[in-house]
Simulated scan of single mutants.
Amino acid sequence: EIEGWVGIKHRDVLRCLAAELKARRARTVFKTAAPESPERTWCRKASMLAKRSAKTRAEERWDLTIPPNTALPGLHLQGNRQCVFYRSIREIKNKTLTPRPSTLKMLDVVRKDVKSAFGRYVTDADIWLAVSAKDLLPRTAQFLWKGLHKAHRIGSYWNHIPECGARAICQECGALEDLEHILLRCTSPGQSIIWQAAETLW
């Protein structure tokens, strides 16, 4: 709370919850549920409900009105770290940015594919965190980041450059040479060879 909930997922809900707890006059105690206990089963069910509810906007589910004089209005200036202020400034600036339609479309494609393949719902933040994971080499992370933004110089990129429109079309298939086509759909022999090698290495 002292850090203003900067970078915290579902902070509107958590901020309201913290305020409600502070507004209580009775003592509040948290305990760890023992394994295989009824309480642990209830915790699992609560977690499943929370994940399911995370798919919709918080304002549509709960009244997030905070009781008066129970929540800090923002960041604590004293005792906070510089990185917290920096993240807060970035969050404020990001709110003024207009999302790119192509990026939103790619995020939606990734979200649907993850749901289909693994049965999990992921948010935009989950996808961006996965792309910037420390396990990835910088070049790999940059490739994925550009893919989500459709920033590779392939496909429709060339349609906006005079006399370069032919580069947008795959010479092998005659289809638009976007990233999905190059990686998954192209009938070029090299594509299948690379995927076979990748499967062997994996």
Rank of each mutant, 00 (worst) to 15 (best):
R100Y: 03
I154N: 01
V110Q: 04
A54L: 11
I193V: 13
S102E: 12
Q82P: 01
S188C: 11
V6C: 09
L49D: 15
Q142G: 05
L64I: 07
E60Q: 14
L129T: 07
T28P: 01
E20G: 02
H76A: 14
L49A: 15
N159T: 07
E36A: 11
G74E: 08
K31G: 05
D126A: 05
D135H: 02
G4L: 10
D108N: 12
L17N: 02
V29T: 13
K95N: 07
L72F: 06
H160Y: 07
D124R: 10
W128A: 02
N69D: 15
Q82D: 11
A130S: 12
Q191N: 14
E199M: 14
R15K: 15
E39H: 05
S116N: 09
K45R: 14
T103I: 00
K55Y: 00
T140Q: 08
I8H: 07
V13S: 06
A50Y: 13
W145Y: 10
A117T: 01
L183E: 03
A198L: 15
K115C: 09
I127P: 04
R27P: 00
T140I: 12
A130Y: 00
K115Y: 09
G174C: 07
A197V: 05
S88G: 01
I194Y: 10
T70F: 02
Q191D: 00
V114F: 09
A19D: 11
S156F: 05
S156V: 12
W62R: 11
A197T: 09
E163Q: 08
R24Y: 04
R11L: 04
H149P: 01
L97M: 11
P68W: 10
G165S: 13
K51H: 12
